[in-house]
Every structure is written in structure tokens, then in C-alpha cells.
């Protein structure tokens, strides 16, 4: 699914990797700087000295850098849609929505890579007019130069999905028409699917009676994932919600992981996310079914994989 690397892209990647290696010699010293397909960036040591925003944005930068930088995914003049989880009327500390600084950093990286416009939006569960500001994402994205888009219930279009169980569904055209969709969920507990990660995050791209999907959750998620053809997913585990998800609300259920995983393989990322929550990857029906259907591989260590320590 990866695009063939053009000379221009290759030069860009090399140049940026070299720059990054120069700026952050620690992260790159022991490994070669060739782009990988999945990267886990972990913060080393104390974070208290740092502002939340610094931690989140450094982790995001490093993870994307290891994949070859945002230029690998964004071409000049592209329209990018970033799809975080902004479903709930909760604050960033409650970890029910994606970390606003992770989203803002992605906006900035896309713009730096030449994107014409970076839109951010989600078909929320609670009222978007409340969740957008409450999540902190609206303010962070605006500051980074991105555009918050309210998903409009009257503007969904029935599209042909042609999956195994999902034949057609209401999908938001503005998202599908973007040149790139970056899937940025937060790692959370979910009582039916065990965890809500990248694949489940695509439920914010659709309209209609989404609750029906619970009747064959993994099947619908796999079909939707196949339809979306993910190119870049970023798993936000700066804070994760370990219980009472996906709404949360109690900070006692939130665990600080200071981790960002980014990659091109959605199944691998979901497998990694499940491990963060203390599960085995195969505990997740969507990971099992997704791998069986060839949407990716669960054993992410077999991919071109790199772990980066950030400090």
C-alpha cells in the first residue's frame, strides 16, 4: 500500500532524517535512519519538568520522523483530514479524547510538509459544539494553523463499502475526498471490543445508526478499515484510559504512558495498543479478524519497526 518513493521524496526524507539526527543525536545514534513502517516513541525519565505540550509534541515529532517524516505521506498542496477521537465532553486529563497537543503537532507537521489545508474533525458522540472546545483540540488546532470542521449530520452520503458484512453506509464525503486521512485515536478501554484503538476510530467517519455495528463489531470495523485504506495512523498513548471507557471521566482510571506509536499498519498499531492496556493482541477480535483478512499483521515486531526514546 506504500507509495513508490520518488527521487524527490527520497531526497526529502534523507535530508530531514539527517537534520533530525543532527538535532536529536540520542534518538538516532544506535540505529540507522532509514524510514520504518512503525515506530514507538517513549519518553525517558521524568516528565514533570516538562510542559505536557512539549512531551506530547516531541513524542509525535519523533515517531513521525522515524517513519520518514510527514513528507512521506503529504505532498505539496494536499488536503489532509486528521481524525482524532473528540467524541466526549471531557477534558484532556480525563483521556477520553485524543491529546490536543498530539493533534496540533500533526497539524503543524502536515503544514510544514506542504499541505494546503489541514482539517480536523470527528463525528462525535456528545454534542460537538461542546466536545471540540472541552477536549482542548479546537484551541490547539486553531493555534497550529489547522481548521476545525464540524461534521454535519445533513451532509453524509451513502457510499458503497462492499465489505463482507458492511455493504453500504453513510460516510462523510469531505473526509473521503481528502488526499490523506490521518487516524489519531487515544488508547482506551472498551467493554465490548476490549479496547478502542485505530480501527474503531473510523466510526467517527460515518453517520447513521452507528450503534448497530456492535452486533458484529469486528466484522464492521474490518470492512470499514478496508474501505478507508489507512496510510498513516498515530496511536496516542500519552495518557490512556484503563477502565470505564470509552467515556471515562475519572482521572483515577487514567494512566500516563508518555508513548506515541505511529505507523502504516493499522492492525499492528491496534495490537500494540492492546498490549499497552495489558491484553494480548489476539484478545482483540478486530485484530484477529483484521490480520486474517490481510489488513495488516498483529506481530508488529516483524515489521520494519523501531523504538525511540525521547527525552
Amino acid at each position: 500500500m506504500m507509495k513508490k518513493t520518488s527521487r524527490r521524496t527520497f531526497l526529502g526524507i534523507t535530508a530531514s532524517a539527517a537534520t533530525a539526527a543532527f538535532i536529536h543525536p540520542v534518538g538516532f545514534s544506535q540505529e540507522n535512519a532509514s524510514p520504518v513502517d512503525m515506530c514507538v516513541a517513549r519518553w525517558q525519565g521524568e516528565t514533570s519538568a516538562y510542559d505536557d505540550a512539549v512531551v506530547a509534541s516531541k513524542l509525535t515529532e519523533q515517531a513521525i520522523q522515524a517513519l520518514g517524516g510527514m513528507q512521506r505521506f503529504v505532498s505539496k498542496g494536499d488536503t489532509v483530514w486528521i481524525k482524532p477521537n473528540i467524541a466526549w465532553n471531557r477534558t484532556p486529563e480525563q483521556a477520553a479524547n485524543t491529546n490536543p497537543d498530539v493533534v496540533a503537532t500533526l497539524v503543524r507537521l502536515c503544514l510544514e510538509a506542504g499541505a494546503k489545508i489541514v482539517k480536523v474533525g470527528d463525528n462525535t458522540c456528545a454534542d460537538a459544539k461542546q466536545t471540540y472546545p472541552m477536549s482542548g483540540i479546537e484551541a490547539a488546532v486553531r493555534k497550529a494553523g489547522g481548521k476545525m470542521v464540524y461534521v454535519d449530520n445533513n451532509r453524509f452520503r451513502k457510499m458503497s463499502i462492499n465489505g463482507e458484512v458492511l455493504k453500504e453506509w453513510e460516510v462523510y464525503p469531505e473526509i473521503i475526498e481528502s488526499d490523506l486521512v490521518i487516524n489519531v485515536p487515544v488508547v482506551k478501554h472498551h467493554s465490548l471490543s476490549t479496547a478502542t484503538l485505530c480501527m474503531k476510530n473510523y466510526m467517527g467517519v460515518i453517520g447513521g445508526s452507528r450503534g448497530q455495528w456492535h452486533q458484529d463489531f469486528a466484522g464492521y470495523l474490518c470492512d470499514m478499515t478496508a474501505f478507508m485504506k489507512p496510510r498513516l495512523c498515530v496511536l496516542d498513548a500519552v495518557r490512556i484510559l484503563t477502565a470505564n471507557g470509552p467515556t471515562g471521566g475519572n482521572v483515577a482510571d487514567v494512566k500516563r504512558m508518555n508513548t506515541i506509536a505511529a505507523g502504516t499498519d493499522i492492525v499492528a498499531l491496534d495490537a500494540f495498543g492492546a498490549e499497552l492496556l495489558g491484553h494480548k493482541a489476539e484478545d482483540l477480535p478486530s485484530v484477529r479478524r483484521g490480520e486474517a483478512r490481510g489488513l495488516g499483521r498483529a506481530d508488529y515486531r516483524k515489521l520494519a519497526f523501531r523504538e525511540v526514546s525521547v527525552s
Binding site: 467493554s191 452486533q215 470505564n244 475519572n250
Partner: peptide, 25 residues
């Protein structure tokens, strides 16, 4: 659904906004 029609569905529990969840499974 899980009582009457043998299908899984937890959408009420999923959305329950009470931090400790007023709906349990």
C-alpha cells in the same frame, strides 16, 4: 438485544457518562 434477540450490544453502557458507569454488564 442481548436479552431478547441474542445479539451483542453495549451501546448504553458505552455512552453512560457517569464516571464509574451506572450501567454494568
Amino acid at each position: 438485544l442481548p436479552y431478547a434477540y441474542g445479539r451483542s450490544c453495549i451501546i448504553c453502557e458505552e455512552h453512560c457518562p457517569v464516571p464509574q458507569k451506572a450501567i454494568y454488564l
